[in-house]
Amino acid sequence: MPKITYVDLDGAKFECEVANGLSVMEGAIANMVPGILAICGGSCACSTCHAYIDEAWSAQVGAANDIEDATLDLANERRPQSRLTCQIQVTPTLDGLVVHVAKND
């Protein structure tokens, strides 16, 4: 299973194995990573699974689609690295991915 490292707001690292096909958000929820709230359950409606993709992984992860891009406007402190983790599907090419949890309260 691909390994994903979630870095929370306090800098704590959570190294998690996440099954292919799940979303990066689902991986965070299953592993109780603090700060990924996902209030809408992954419908790309609320922006509370917002995270910053580690710069080394930007190209692999790619850009947000139109709906996600619009929804990201609701997020706190949007940056170029911002993504909604519910919209990123885990695949073998994301093994080793590092994401930094944003302020989602």
Binding site: D66, I67, D69, A70, T71, D73, L74
Partner: peptide
């Protein structure tokens, strides 16, 4: 029109 929806919110 997701961007218009967000603007409307």
């Amino acid at each position: 029109r997701p961007a218009e929806h967000m603007a409307a919110r």
